[in-house]
Design a protein around this nucleic acid. Structure first.
Lengths: 242, 242
DNA sequence: ACGTCCTTGTGAACGTTCGCACAAAGTGAG
DNA sequence: CTCACTTTGTGCGAACGTTCACAAGGACGT
């Protein structure tokens, strides 16, 4: 998944000016911290300690401090972190202070859910277009936008400067959509279709698979209960009376 | 394989009487392998090499072989893996050979998308009930099921032996739903709401966050382009350093 | 039967991530 | 000013994950 073209031997560390070598694991957590900070901000909390913020984000406090230290020293010892300032710094690091036009391909249930999802707009993402191959769907209004035919994909991407493509099509159509997005210069793709997309290394693909998460949960339940449905195998602890 | 001598404390891996601790990273990939194998199966492919299967799943072939080796020696040297047999073994390991009743709470766009998602049913998951707190939604037909009021949550869970709860509510309602699910014995929760749920340690929570994935993509684009949109250059300068 | 070719399974090296524990740095009371 | 207290930032060892490289094992042609 990682296509880091780093000269062999060096750890992603301090580079030019500000520290730009942030570990992937840290990057994946920054949005979670941001979310927790937003909640604190709404409550009017001025500062927060690493302990409290870590608890709100569901991580270890040492890990949180180390993560934040990759952005710089934005805390005050003895006090904690200024909520507003930290929100700004994380947003800036994630590139959320600018506007990201996104194209969503596929307006089935999932595509519509995505178009309506408030979390996109509130984080600097803007749906530039909704596309679908089904003539019956073209022209429909979804989340205040008119669904366009997928033939417009190339035009929309170029006119709106779309940098991120979201694929929410059925599985068989996903690869072709991916190819077309790549062909018009999109280098970042978020894929919801249950297929493994093939693309050049320079294209960054992230995948969200609803059923995979369920399967992982099922594995752990099965492992914990020896293959029995827990609710049917007894409500109490195994140590309890049988 | 030698069993690792684990010090007292928390156990990151599955601990069982049997020596079958499968790493989390491997478990997370098994569904991907399974998906690739299903595709091969539909094409009538009898056997597949680790190289080909790894390519189809988008991973390194050595990693795939090591992952599969945790399940047992199911390959034949010089030939590869029998597709049908491997499908069976992975399915069994993931617990997909049995039926998992699932309750979906929240029938907004996302909840409906989930209810309609074919990937659930085809993998041994069955939607036992769709719940919503909105009286206007109760009684509606979604994916062939009637939406019930969330007050029925406890009854549904107990009657159907639901082991997995899916939370697709708005953020403010998620924690309460989580608490209620835990209270009736649900130990595995898949959370789509953009909040960090607090629950006892024995409850396994997995989170899917649509906007977090987008934010991670945005970070990488921004990092690669120095903070500017690749297509639309020149709008806002990056902040000066301290 | 035997040698050659192919592929699995895995030991070992390497890189990444985690979390403890503590020094450094700031606050505030007296 | 000094001292006690709080909290950050980080060095370090351990745990975890990934990848290389190759021995072991099986199929197949001759």
């Amino acid at each position: 998944m990682t296509s880091s073209n780093r000269p062999a031997g060096e750890v992603p560390r301090v580079r030019a000016g500000r520290d730009r070598g942030i570990p992937d694991a840290t990057v994946a957590r920054l949005p979670v911290y941001l979310r927790a900070l937003m909640t604190l901000s709404e409550r009017g909390t001025p500062t927060v300690s690493s302990e409290d913020l870590a608890s709100a984000a569901g991580v270890n406090s040492a890990k949180l401090r180390k993560d934040l230290s990759h952005l710089g020293s934005y805390g005050t010892r003895g006090v904690g972190y200024d909520v507003q300032y930290l929100i700004y710094q994380i947003s800036r690091e994630l590139g959320l202070t600018q506007d990201w036009p996104v194209v969503i391909v596929g307006t089935g249930n999932l595509g519509r859910a995505l178009a309506d999802y408030g979390g996109f707009v509130s984080r600097g993402f803007r749906v530039a277009a909704l596309l679908d191959a089904d003539p019956a769907k073209v022209g429909q209004q979804v989340a205040g936008m008119t669904v366009q035919h997928v033939d417009k994909l190339e035009a929309v991407v170029q006119e709106s400067g779309v940098a991120i493509g979201v694929i929410a099509t059925p599985a068989p159509a996903a690869q072709e959509v991916c190819d077309r997005l790549v062909a018009v210069g999109v280098r970042s793709i978020l894929n919801f279709a249950p297929v493994v997309l093939q693309a050049p290394d320079e294209v960054r693909i992230r995948k969200v698979d609803l059923s995979i998460e369920l399967q992982i949960l099922a594995f752990h339940i099965q492992r914990a209960t020896g293959g029995q449905l827990p609710a049917l195998a007894g409500e109490q602890e195994p140590e309890g009376a049988t």
